[in-house]
Amino acid sequence: MTTVLFIVFGGMALVSALLAVTRQNPIASAIWLVGMFFGLAGVYVVLEAYFVAAVQVLVYAGAIMVLFLFVIMLLDLRTKQLDEEGPPKMPIWGVLAAVLFIVASGWALMDAVGTPGFFPDAEERAALELDGSAKAIGADLFGRWLLAFEVTSILLLGGILGAVILTKRRLT
């Protein structure tokens, strides 16, 4: 059952991602990317990471992409301008680089799969228990990773300040 669900959601994510990078219109790209986020949320559910799945939809689809959409609408790119740009050009070296990357890292993955004990086998996996609930993640986040958590707040503050300074025309 999980295999089928994974293929459905993973396939959805992959196809949406491919469509997202090949669309000419940024709005269409953004919508396909939302599809990818949903596919990945499905993958997370299959992997029993429910909290991550919910946060994925909440943060990526609910906030980040709405912001993206807002900015794209604000820029108001005319279809005429998009037509001038023409259909997206895919330089052959770029495709080659992507293919090369997937081959190289796929080879590394295959190598890792061959290593005994790297991936637990079926029986071992069935015995694994992982509590992906909000409570467990919260305990981990505010326990072991408290310092990292606090540092992200500084990162976000930097992000806010940077965005304000960049978009403000003149600081008076």
Binding site: F51, V52, V55, V59, I137, L141, T152, L156, G159, G162
Partner: peptide, 24 residues
């Protein structure tokens, strides 16, 4: 091991900050 899922949050935080700056 839950750390992986915790790291996803940090990655999301980075993504949020990156998008804010990037869009600016």
């Amino acid at each position: 091991e839950l750390s992986g899922q915790v790291f996803v949050f940090f990655s999301m935080t980075v993504a949020a900050a990156e998008v804010a700056i990037g869009l600016a």
